[in-house]
Design a protein around this nucleic acid. Structure first.
Length: 565
RNA sequence: AACCCGGUGGUGUAAUAGGCAACACAGGAGUUUUUGGUACUCCCGUUCCAGGUUCGAGUCCUGGCCGGGUUGCCA
C-alpha cells in the first residue's frame, strides 16, 4: 500500500494533508471525522466518504471520529445510529474512544451563540419563514435587512434565552448571524443559526426546544473535537465561507474544510429519497434487498468489504460528479471472490441424467479441488451416482456452431468425475427434454482419459441421490437504464425498474458439502458464479443469493450469433 | 446571462518542478485451461474549443463553450 509520507500523495486531499504535515500545521496532527445524520441507512455513496475520512486518517497515522450529526430531531432515530455503526464496522473501519454526538455539544453551542450575540454578530428575528425568504433576495437581487436586525444586545439575549426556555411556539423566532444581506453567496445573507422545535430528540429527549442549523453546528462540532481536516461533500462548497466566518468570529480552533464530489453508479440510484421510495413502494423487499446499493443490501448480496474499499481506492477523489460503471465495482468483487471463494457444484436448472452403464447401487466419491487459486484450501470428496443432475442449458439436441457442451452422440467431461456420452433424450408431451440417457467410461475416473482423447467441455453436476435442494435468487441491475434519474417530465423514474431484476429459482440442486452452511457463507458454483447463503434460510429450506455470475464467454457468443442472424 | 466549482479514451483514475499521455474497467481478437472461470498477449485517444507564452503545454496566461451547484427555520 502507498504510504503518502514516503510516496507521493495519490489525490488532491492527501496532497493538502501531506503539505500541512510538512508545515507542521496543527502540530503535524491529522484528525478527520465521518459525520452521518442518523436518518437513514448507509449506501455505497457513503462508503466513499467513509473510505476517505477513515482512510486518510489511517494513512497519516491520525484519528477519525465517528460522529452522529443529530441536530434535527424530526428525522433522526436510534435505529439508524445502531445500523450506521454496524455498517461502518462491516466495511472494516473502527474508531477509538466511542462515538460522538453533535447533540452532546448543545450546551457549548448555546454559549457560543450568546458570545456572538454579545459581540453584536447575531440577532433574534421575528420574521416568518416566508418573510425571511422574501427578504433574502434572489440570484440577481441583493437581500434586504430584517426590521429586527438592529435590536440591542440586551433584547437579543433576552429573546434568545426565552427561545431556549420554551416561551415561544415553533417557527415564531430564529437566531440569525448578522453578516451581509447583499452577499452574492446566499449562505452569508444572515443565515439562521437556531430554530424553535418542540420535539423529542433521540439522544437528548425533551431537554431542548431550540436546535442549531447545520452551518452553525458543524464547524463547532469539528472545532470542539480538534478536527484538522473536515472533509465533506461538494454540496458544502458554497457553505465554506460561512464555516470559516463562524470559527473566525469565535476565534477558536479552525479546521480546514475540503470538499470532494460524490459519484453515481450506473443502473442504480443512491439518493436517500429515491431509495426510500423504492422501499416504500415495495419494489424491493426492504433496505437490505440485495439489489439495493445500501451497505446492508450489498452485504446480503455477498459483496465483500474488501472489494468495496478497493473500488473506492480506484475511483479516487475528485471535484465533479462522475458516473462510475457498475462493472467496475463488480470487477473488484469478482477479483476478491475468485481468490477466496471455495468452489462447489450447484445446478440451477436441473436436467436429470441417467448413466445407463453405471452400476445401480454403486456409491463413488471423487476428489475435488476446493480452490484452484488457493492450494491451502485443500480438497473434498464429492459423491457420484447413477442418476445425476446437470444444467439444463448444458444440453442441446440440435447444437449451433461453437456449442461445445452435451448433445446426442457427443462426449463431455463431468468435472472431477468421468467422461460421458449422450445416447438419447427423453421428451415430454410438449417436446421438452426431461431426461438424458448416457454411458460413462470407467477408465476416465477423475476426468482424464488414459488414451489421451479430448473433450471440448467440462460440465458441473450433482448426484441426485445426495443433492441438497435450494432456492436460488438471481439478481440483475435494478434499473434498465444506465442513469435511472434521466427521465422526461411526464415519465416516472420508477418505471425504469428492471422487471427481471429478481429471478427466483426453486428446486435447485447443490452439492451435499453445503449441508449446514451458515448465513453469509460464500461459495463459487463452478461455471456459474459467486453465491452466498441468505438470511431467509431455515432448517428445511436453503436460500442462496447469486452475488455475481462468472464472466460468460458463451453468453457473449450467443448474443453475437443472435444479432448476426 | 449574479456568484462558486469543474472539464484527460465508451467509463474511472494517472502523468516529478511545463518534457514520448500511463493504469484499470468495459468492448474486440487470440494463447493457455479438467470452470467457455482464472492467468497471459494484442487492438481500441483531436487531453472541451480558440488564441498566447515557450525549443517544448494535458499542465502556465487570456477569451469562449459545456456541465454541476447556490434563492430550507434539511444535512
Amino acid at each position: 500500500m502507498t504510504t503518502p509520507q514516503e510516496d507521493k500523495p495519490v489525490d488532491f486531499i492527501r496532497t493538502i494533508v501531506a503539505g500541512d504535515i510538512a508545515n507542521n500545521k496543527n502540530g503535524g496532527r491529522v484528525h478527520t471525522r465521518f459525520p452521518p445524520e442518523p436518518n437513514g441507512y448507509l449506501h455505497i455513496g457513503h462508503a466513499k466518504a467513509i473510505c476517505i475520512d477513515f482512510g486518510i486518517a489511517a494513512d497519516f497515522a491520525g484519528k477519525c471520529n465517528l460522529r452522529m450529526d443529530d441536530t434535527n430531531p424530526i428525522a433522526e432515530e436510534q435505529e439508524y445510529v445502531d445500523a450506521i455503526q454496524e455498517d461502518i464496522r462491516w466495511l472494516g473501519w473502527d474508531w477509538d474512544g466511542g462515538m460522538f454526538f453533535a447533540s452532546d455539544y448543545f450546551e457549548r453551542m448555546y454559549e457560543y451563540a450568546l458570545q456572538l450575540i454579545d459581540a453584536g454578530k447575531a440577532y433574534v428575528d421575528d420574521l416568518t419563514a416566508e418573510e425571511i425568504r422574501e427578504y433574502r433576495g434572489t440570484l440577481s437581487a441583493p437581500g434586504r435587512n430584517s426590521p429586527h436586525r438592529d435590536r440591542s444586545v440586551e433584547e437579543n439575549r433576552d429573546l434568545f434565552e426565552r427561545m431556549k426556555a420554551g416561551e415561544f411556539p415553533d417557527g415564531t423566532r430564529v437566531l440569525r448571524a448578522k453578516i451581509d444581506m447583499s452577499s452574492p453567496n446566499f449562505n452569508m445573507r444572515d443565515p439562521v443559526m437556531y430554530r424553535i422545535l418542540h420535539a423529542v430528540h433521540p439522544h437528548r429527549g425533551d431537554e431542548w426546544c431550540i436546535y442549531p442549523m447545520y452551518d452553525w453546528a458543524h464547524g463547532l462540532e469539528d472545532s470542539l473535537e480538534g478536527i484538522t481536516h473536515s472533509l465533506c461533500d461538494l454540496d458544502f462548497e458554497n457553505h465554506r465561507p460561512l464555516y470559516d466566518w463562524f470559527l473566525d468570529q469565535l476565534d477558536i480552533h479552525h479546521p480546514q474544510q475540503i470538499e470532494f464530489a460524490r459519484f453515481n453508479l450506473t443502473y442504480t440510484v443512491t439518493s436517500k429519497r429515491k431509495l426510500k421510495q423504492l422501499v416504500e413502494s415495495n419494489l424491493v423487499s426492504g433496505w437490505d434487498d440485495p439489489r439495493l446499493p445500501t451497505l446492508r443490501g450489498l452485504r446480503r448480496r455477498g459483496f465483500t468489504p474488501g472489494a468495496i474499499c478497493d473500488f473506492m481506492k480506484h475511483i479516487g477523489i475528485n471535484k465533479f460528479i462522475s458516473t462510475v460503471d457498475s462493472a467496475l465495482l463488480e470487477h473488484f468483487v469478482r477479483k476478491d471472490l475468485n481468490l477466496t471463494s471455495p468452489r462447489v457444484m450447484g445446478v440451477l436448472r436441473p436436467l436429470k441424467v441417467v448413466i445407463d452403464n453405471y452400476p445401480n447401487d454403486q456409491a463413488d466419491e471423487l476428489d475435488a479441488v476446493n480452490n484452484p487459486e488457493d492450494e491451502s484450501a485443500g480438497t473434498r470428496k464429492v459423491p457420484f451416482s447413477k442418476v445425476i443432475y446437470i444444467e439444463r442449458e448444458d444440453f442441446m439436441e440440435d447444437p449451433p456452431r461453437k456449442f461445445f457442451r452435451l448433445s446426442p452422440g457427443r462426449e463431455v467431461r463431468l468435472r472431477y468425475a468421468y467422461f460421458i456420452t449422450c445416447n438419447s433424450a427423453i421428451k415430454d408431451d410438449d417436446g421438452n427434454v426431461v431426461e438424458l440417457h448416457c454411458t460413462y467410461d470407467p477408465e476416465t475416473r477423475g476426468g482424464d482419459s488414459p488414451d489421451g482423447r479430448k473433450v471440448k467441455s467440462t460440465l458441473h453436476w450433482v448426484s441426485a441421490a445426495r443433492a441438497l435442494d435450494a432456492e436460488i435468487r438471481l439478481y440483475d441491475h435494478l434499473f434498465t437504464k444506465e442513469n435511472p434519474s434521466d427521465v422526461g417530465e411526464d415519465e416516472d423514474w420508477l418505471d425504469g425498474v428492471n422487471p427481471d431484476s429478481l429471478e427466483v429459482l426453486t428446486g435447485c440442486k447443490v452439492e451435499p458439502s453445503l449441508t449446514g452452511a451458515t448465513v453469509g457463507t460464500r461459495v463459487q458454483f463452478e461455471r456459474q458464479g459467486y453465491f452466498c447463503v441468505d438470511q431467509d434460510t431455515t432448517e428445511d429450506k436453503m436460500v442462496i443469493n447469486r452475488t455475481l455470475s462468472l464472466r460468460d464467454t458463451w453468453a457473449k457468443i450467443q448474443k453475437q450469433q443472435k444479432s448476426s442472424e
